[in-house]
Structure formats: structure tokens, C-alpha cells
Design a protein around this nucleic acid. Structure first.
Lengths: 336, 336
DNA sequence: ATGAAAGCGCTAACAC
DNA sequence: GTGTTAGCGCTTTCAT
């Protein structure tokens, strides 16, 4: 063993030369291959540790035609729900010794396509994606399938059937919110929903409406749509300017909740005396307010864990299409 | 040109065989090398487009010993400031045709080391990192330097001098907040600060205190420390239970602001009648409240852009150590 | 203007 | 139990 100059990249070749054995023996020793003599393994491992050997990921990937990187695409990172989803994925990813490439599509289907291409070119081991409102199930997805790259759609998923989807229980969540309001005997409910193009919005609206039609058809239901904090604020103010004065407001998401609560503060409404609030939420935002907001929890973190399980399954050969749903639960605040 | 079977990976070799020219010619043609005849380039490009050729990143990286991936490590993704930083980096990264590996250290120095190793093994082109409170400037960083991988520290940076740092103007921000309170004639100020181990906290506390000592030494200053939403809430409640009743509260971060505002709501304090609030913030949280909170803006997004500029510089050969600071500004709400 | 050939660092089938 | 060899897909030097 001669001294190896610092700063130099250590390869299997260098180790093999120092030890006067072949490259393949070194490779096998490091992988703890049963064929290799224990004493050889020892020598190799020692030197590898001493020299601080680190395998060249690119060479391995090229050779084995695999990779240890997952890809993830979301419309925006800056979203309470996606944070926790990403955190979960990132945790699991690291446990597996993989890493994670995160990309944002900015609600732009063209950028989303670009991002898919980046992931394809990086030959990622799998993709997690929450699509934009304008995404169509196009060639890009098919091409990935052809390459054998598994795609798990989550949260905002295509209507298309034959793909892997992992969603929160949208229908149950909206129904649970509706029935909570019904039980509290609310008669005039303002429901503020997100982008009507998204299947997530369609599902939640449908379930919310049907719950009332079935269980409390006499309730007056006012539907509004808001794509942002500002619009949710505006819609709430409008409802009051128009003299509607609902006795409860349903917020489909955290973003909408923040807008509604800003309006509630501006209008100096007392919660729950003047108006009740209920939301579907990831859990952080409702706790910022006093009284705390009652919400149906749909955990991004839990969804991330579920999505990863599906991905791991897929990679281990269970490649059939599956449609998983994460259960939800009511977290009682004092806003009703 | 014969029909190529679908689903098959297209390589330079396949194109060269179809066209009966050598691999190197195809490679050069695709790179628009001046030596290659225009007609050859045309043919090659046409077929490459037709077959939807995509170069194998791993082969390129292995051959050229470069990569088109940046790495980013933060204590937690779920943080308003880091979101916007990451968004900026992610945008620039994509513009360059690079991608971004994002890792969380969860405020754990050991995981941070692991993450650095992952990035090293992925031979990333550069690293952006905001360190944990317990990070020491160790071998890991030196090893990266030796490998020629540039590191840009941002936001939470080591005290150590000879590294690239990009920070918000902590001192100016805290001084600006202090002087705003002094101008408003506040006499009893509760300052809630983050983790005292971090240089960011030290700088902000020092500047805040010194501003008062210099410009309004008669002011009563109460310092408290909070590492989370809950602790900020608790510290504020404590101050009131102890009968301190400050006329202004300074919040060093968004997280602290959310805790303080929860306490304000619980204690049924009127802002700014009963108490004034000022924060150092990324800009989103202060707008959730009514009245909107006055804050000193330190934009994560702008910091990201600045950090990326530094990285691009570095990669283009300007490798000298630099210490950049992002200016801040006061955004007036109605909370003072 | 094009081709041949070497090699980046690694794995794995096949020898012995 | 260890070595030899071929090759993953690409770039690049050197020849022609």
C-alpha cells in the first residue's frame, strides 16, 4: 500500500493496483460477494475505508441502466399540502439511499412537459406527479411508461383510469364536512371551491352538494370559486356585500381558508357566533386562528408515505395499476 | 432508414448504423460541430428528431466527469422562507437545463452529513446549503472543496470566514425594525428570537439591542427565545401572565409571528391599540392578519436569485470567496 | 469532412 | 476464489 495523493479520485482500479488483485475481485469484495475469501474482503474493505473510496454513481447507472434518483413534480412547492407530501417522500427516499429531484410546473402544462423530459433524461427510477389544471394525458406519459419508468399520480390526478393514483379521500372528506355542518343545523352555507377544471374540485363539490341534497335538502347552498388567497377573500366579501350572510362557510383548501379568514377579520365577524367555518386542510393553518378552525384533515405527509409505498411495490415488480385512497378524519376546533 | 421498433432506446450507435456513418460523426453533427458537412448534419438531425433521440445523461457525465444537477440542503422544506428560496433556485436551474436535488436535514447535523455524502456521490455541479444549529465546518465540506464542488452557504451560514455566503441583511433588518419601533415611541418592547446558537439570531439580536441602546436607551427591552410556533405562543402568554404587558412585540421570523399572533388572539388584544407588532418576514404571513402586520421584508426568492448568480459566477471560473448581502425594506402594515 | 480507437468507472458472464 | 473480457453510451484525440 503506497500513499495515495490527496484530492485524487479513488476508483476500483486504484485499489486493485495497490493490492495487486483484479478490479472485479475488488468490486465483488466490496459487495460482500460469497465467492470472495474473507481475508481478501478484509484487505479490500480496509483500504477502501482508508482511501475513502466512493463508487461513481454515473458509472453504475450507465452500466446497470438503473438509477437511484426519484423525480417529483408539483404545480408549486409553496403550498402547505405539498410541503408535507414532499417531506414524507424525501424521508423515505433517503432511507432507501436514493435521492429526489424536485421540479415545479408553476401551473403551466408546457413547463410540466419540460420537467417530465428532464426526469426522463435523468432516467429516474420513478416519478411522483401532481398535475396542473391543463395537463392532458399525452405522449410524454406514454413514453415514460414505455421506458418502464413508474409514475404515481397524487392529489391532482388525471381523470384517465388506467394509471396509478394516490389521493386523499376527496369524496369522504367533502361529505364529512357537509354532514358536520348539517348536524350543526346550518341552513345557509357558502362553499368556496378551487379550480373547477380539476378532478379534485369536481369530486369535492359533487360530494358536498349531494350530502346536502340527501340529508338536508332544505339548506341554501351558495357555491363560489376561488383560485387564490385574494379571490377567496373577495368571494367572501362579495357574499356579505350581496347581503347573503351565510351561517357557515366551507373552505375546500388551506389557501381558501386563509382568504376567508382574512375576510372574516375585515368584516369583524365573530366565529362561530356570526358565522361557522369548516375546511379541508393539511392541519397547520387552522391552528393559527382563535378559535381554532374545525377541519377535515387530509394529511400530505401520510399521502406521501402511501405514495412511496406504492412506488416501492411497483419497483418490486407489482406493476399492476392501482388506485389508492387515504382516509380522512374530522379534527374539531371551536369554529362551529 | 428502416423502421425502428418502438420502445427501444435510441443511441448514437443506432443512428449511425441507420445512416451508415460513424458514431463520432453523429455525435459531432448533433453538437453542430463546424467540421461536419451541412448535408450530413441535416440528415442526422432529421433522423434524431424522428426517432426522438435523447442523449444518455449518465454516459455523458461519466465521460466528461461533469453533471447537470445542483444540490440543495435545508433544515426543513416546510418553511415559508425556504420555499421561496427553493423556487428561485429551481427556476434558474431549469433555465440552465440543469436539475435540482433537494434534501432536508431536519435540524440534525448527522443527517446533514449524510445528505452531503449523497450529493457528493451524485457528483453534483454545486451545492446550496443552509446549515443546522449544530453544524461544524468539518471534513465533509473540505472534501467537497477538494473535489472542486462549489458550496454556497445561504441564510443560516457558518461563522467561519473563508466560504461563500449569501445572506439577507440581518443587521440592517433588525436595526430597521428597532428604529421603526423607536420612531413610534415604544417604551416596553418584547423581542422574541429564534435559536440562540445560530449566527442569524446572534446578529439580529445584537443589532436590535444596539439600536435601542444607541437611539433610545430608556426603552425597556425584554428578550425571549422561541424555537417553534408553540414556544412563541407560550412566551407571549408568559409575558402577559407576568404582568409585563409590552407595548410592542418584535418577531424575528414568520414562525415566531404566527405564535405571537395566536397569543394575541387568545389574549384578545387589539392590534395596534393594545400592542404593536413588527416582524422580519418573507412577506406572506403578515398579510393573513387584519390589520396587516408591519414587517421588514427579507425575500427568500430574491436571496435565491442572488445565490444562483454567485453559483453561476463560480462555475464560470470566478472562484474567489465572496460574502453577499441582500438588502431589506420596510413594508408598512397597520400594526404599529 | 469523416472514421477508428481509447477510455470514463463499473458490472457480470464466463473462464480457469 | 480470482481473473479476463466485453460493454453500458458517450466524447475526443489522432489519423486519414
Amino acid at each position: 500500500v503506497y500513499l495515495v495523493q490527496m484530492h485524487q479520485k479513488i476508483t476500483l482500479k486504484k485499489i486493485s493496483e495497490s493490492l495487486n488483485i483484479s478490479i472485479s475481485t475488488v468490486s465483488r469484495a466490496l459487495k460482500n460477494h460469497p465467492d470472495i475469501a474473507e481475508i481478501t474482503k478484509q484487505k479490500v474493505r480496509e483500504l477502501a475505508t482508508l482511501l475513502d473510496y466512493e463508487p461513481n454513481t454515473y458509472a453504475i447507472n450507465l452500466r446497470t441502466n438503473t438509477s437511484n434518483v426519484f423525480g417529483l413534480i408539483v404545480p408549486v412547492i409553496s403550498n402547505f399540502f405539498y410541503h408535507s407530501f414532499i417531506s414524507a417522500i424525501e424521508e423515505e427516499t433517503r432511507k432507501l439511499g436514493y435521492s429526489l429531484i424536485i421540479l415545479q410546473s408553476g401551473e403551466d402544462a408546457a413547463i410540466e412537459q419540460e420537467n417530465l423530459k428532464i426526469l426522463r433524461m435523468n432516467r429516474v427510477a420513478g416519478i411522483f406527479i401532481s398535475i396542473t389544471a391543463n395537463t392532458r394525458y399525452t405522449d410524454s406519459f406514454l413514453k415514460l411508461e414505455e421506458l418502464g419508468i413508474p409514475i404515481i399520480f397524487f392529489d391532482k390526478v388525471p381523470d384517465f383510469e388506467a394509471v396509478n393514483k394516490v389521493c386523499v379521500a376527496d369524496i369522504e372528506a367533502a361529505a364529512l364536512a357537509a354532514n358536520t355542518l348539517i348536524k350543526a343545523n346550518k341552513k345557509k352555507v357558502l362553499a368556496i371551491l378551487g379550480n373547477a377544471e380539476l378532478s379534485i374540485t369536481k369530486k369535492r363539490r359533487k360530494a358536498f352538494q349531494e350530502s346536502f341534497e340527501t340529508n338536508a335538502p332544505e339548506t341554501q347552498l351558495i357555491l363560489a370559486s376561488a383560485h387564490s388567497f385574494e379571490e377567496a377573500l373577495l368571494q367572501t366579501e362579495l357574499a356579505y356585500k350581496d347581503g347573503i350572510r351565510p351561517d357557515a362557510i366551507f373552505c375546500m383548501s388551506d389557501e381558501i381558508l386563509t382568504g376567508v379568514m382574512k375576510a372574516v377579520q375585515l368584516l369583524k365577524l365573530q366565529v362561530p357566533k356570526d358565522v361557522s367555518i369548516i375546511a379541508i386542510s393539511n392541519g397547520f393553518i387552522p391552528r393559527l386562528y382563535e378559535p381554532e378552525i374545525t377541519y377535515v384533515e387530509t394529511s400530505g405527509y401520510d399521502l406521501g408515505k402511501l405514495a412511496f409505498t406504492r412506488m416501492a411495490d411497483f419497483i418490486n415488480g407489482r406493476t399492476f395499476v392501482q388506485n389508492l385512497t387515504l382516509p380522512c378524519r374530522l379534527v374539531a376546533g371551536k369554529s362551529i
